[in-house]
Write a protein that binds this DNA or RNA. Structure first.
Length: 568
RNA sequence: GGGGUCGUAGGGUAGUGGAUAUCCUGUCAGGUUCCGGACCUGAUAACCUGGGUUCGAAUCCCAGCGACUCCGCCA
């Protein structure tokens, strides 16, 4: 509803500017509208007019305000009032706006198809040689929230997990599996990691083994049947574990795309040939280098022995993706920033539409940066386990009345929710230090705070039903007088706007911030405004509001990939 | 050495040119005859330094300092 309000403000303001003879169009000036704590929307245009018309902005603002025509019948406008406040022109919503906002939420999503095109988004894509750790978790959760935001904003979204099955690391793991048995009592990805780490040690100790590994890699690249079977067994085993972890986090990918497919299908070969023709390439011995504009270092696209490299294979993958959608989005760690630039330049040479990158900064531990080798990492599974345990303690403390199954279910929703919220609430270009105890501290104003508001709303609605109160449309909106109920409705009206913003700027943390503010707003309303104990008229009006708040709280949590428990 | 990102109360964090800088946490002081206190209210306390652009800078530019990171015929 906020967007409709903004449109009307634009219209009314433009009319006033014309009447007051300000040539904003000629001057190519923006109306400079912003949300503000002083008004529902404010315009700062007087500042920019001040220069041209050589008058103080306060005078101009007052002048424009005097020319505003707000004599519109109440059912045709969303504006109640507008006035100059110093150099600003402030606009306020009316009762009809509040009423329409609730009605729209109650009626649900309009059936109109708002197809905005197809997006392929790649995220997580961890090497299949071990379990996910907290670094991957940030990638996965940022990626998943972005997917949900974009879907909600009307895009057709397909999610990819790119499987790096051609690297040396995987080869070591596969080689290791030939001689070391997988532990049978461990989750699949953890069992693979054990073998990989043990194999790594062997290879480091004995140079002969390294040759075996390289032989295996060549066999795999040339599609040797036995090698392919061995690879598939190990990679699929590991991925099954990864998928289980992601599932637990409420994350699912639409498809897993194997890197090797692009080598085997000849796509990599094609890319290299085309780059030779279109790009500025040169040989260094028999290795092939590609000069990229604006990047100091040449990109090696073919090894001396003629085999392909990761980057080349990634180019083939991106071309393939690009043919299948309107926009390509990659969620990459900060360490891939240079790679992303190289990718972009090389794709431009190939005439392929370039991807958009969401780069997130690193996660480190208080003891230093993450390092699988040094054993400085926290496995995602371990973290989820611990946080659910912690959540269970909290639930058990508060809800002795519930049975075990119910308590565990709530603990799972609260624990995973807290984890997900923690990972998206911070802007992705911010480096974060992961402190285990802080993450486990569920008391902070994170997901549980928002879930609690939702549970409260549910609780009121449940009690209303028990007492036989119905949620009806025939309420009297004029009985709504408390500022906290009006503020809450305005917050509800802003939801779609926030989704749009998060989608266009690819900033998932905006949604997290909004969710918290909405919950805050609901809690203030809850404090100020009795619902069930109010007089019938007021009760009716407030029940509708509670119902709508519940809907939006649950919607925003869903966009964050967090479940909304009805009680907790 | 070269490039990039970041620097906001004791710790963490929002805010990409405009009104009194957001929120959490910490510390201190309060609040429930009422629908769930995982809640609410108040106090405390911050824009790294130095220049510049601008009517106006946390925000843009330059320099410095600090943190992290990238600069493989690895992935």
């Amino acid at each position: 509803m906020f967007l409709e309000f903004k449109k009307e403000v634009e219209h009314v303001l433009k009319e006033a500017l014309k009447k007051a003879s300000y040539d904003y169009e000629e001057l190519d000036l923006d109306l400079d509208l912003e949300e503000s704590e002083h008004a529902d929307i404010a315009s700062r245009i007087a500042f920019s007019l001040a220069r041209t018309y050589k008058k103080p902005p306060e005078i101009i603002a007052a002048d424009i305000a005097n020319h505003l025509n707000l004599e519109i019948p109440a059912e045709n406008t969303l504006i109640s009032d507008a006035a100059a406040a110093g150099p600003y022109i402030n606009f306020y919503v009316n009762e009809f706006f509040l009423h329409k906002t609730l009605q729209k939420i109650k009626d649900g999503e309009p059936a109109e198809e708002k197809k905005k095109g197809k997006i392929i988004i790649e995220h997580t894509s961890a090497n299949p040689d071990g379990p996910l750790h907290i670094g991957h978790l940030r990638n996965a959760i940022i990626g998943d929230v972005l997917v949900r935001v974009l879907k909600r904003a009307g895009f057709d979204v397909e999610t990819h997990y790119y499987v790096n099955d051609m690297g040396r690391q995987i080869a070591v793991a596969v080689w290791g599996a030939e001689r070391i048995a997988f532990a049978t009592n461990k989750k699949a990805d953890h069992a693979v990691a054990d073998v990989y780490i043990a194999a790594n040690r062997l290879v480091e100790e004995n140079g002969e083994f390294l040759k075996d590994v390289e032989k295996l890699m060549r066999k795999y690249e040339s599609e040797d049947e036995a090698a392919v079977k061995k690879y598939e067994a190990v990679v699929k085993k590991c991925l099954s574990g990864t998928q289980a972890s992601l599932e637990r986090l409420n994350i699912r990918h639409d498809s897993f795309v194997w890197e090797s497919g692009f080598v085997r299908g000849g796509a990599v070969e094609e890319v290299m040939e085309e780059l030779k023709q279109k790009g500025n390439v040169k040989f260094d011995g028999s290795a092939l280098l590609l000069k990229l504009e604006g990047i100091e270092k040449e990109l090696v696209i073919q090894r001396t022995d003629g085999t392909s490299l990761y980057t080349t294979r990634d180019l083939a993958y991106h071309r393939w993706k690009s043919d299948r959608c309107d926009r390509v989005i990659d969620v990459f760690g900060k360490d891939h920033e240079l790679v992303s630039q190289q990718l972009t330049k090389a794709l431009e040479i190939l005439g392929v539409k370039v991807p958009e990158f969401v780069i997130f900064e690193f996660v480190s531990l208080p003891t230093g940066s993450l390092s699988t080798r040094a054993g400085r990492y926290i496995a995602a599974d371990e973290l989820m386990e611990k946080i659910e345990e912690r959540a269970y303690e909290e639930v058990a403390k508060r809800r002795e009345d519930l049975d075990e199954g119910k308590k565990h279910e709530i603990a799972r929703k609260v624990g995973i929710g807290a984890l997900r919220y923690d990972m998206v609430k911070v802007s992705s270009d911010k480096h974060i230090t992961f402190v285990f105890d802080d993450a486990l501290d569920i008391e902070k104003k994170g997901a549980p705070f928002i879930q609690y508001s939702h549970a409260r709303a549910c609780s009121i609605l449940r009690a209303a039903e028990e007492r036989g109160f119905s949620i009806a449309d025939d309420y009297d909106a004029s009985l709504r007088k408390e500022s906290s109920e009006k503020e809450l409705i305005k917050m509800l009206a802003g939801f779609e706007n926030i989704v749009e913003e998060a989608a266009s700027e690819l900033k998932p943390h905006l949604v997290a911030k909004y969710a918290r503010e909405l919950a805050e707003s609901f809690n203030l309303f809850y404090k100020d405004c009795p619902v069930l104990n109010a007089d019938e008229g007021i009760r009716k009006a407030r029940l509708v509001l509670v119902d709508c708040a519940k809907t939006v709280l649950s919607d925003v949590l869903d966009v964050l990939g967090i479940e909304s428990p009805e009680e907790m």
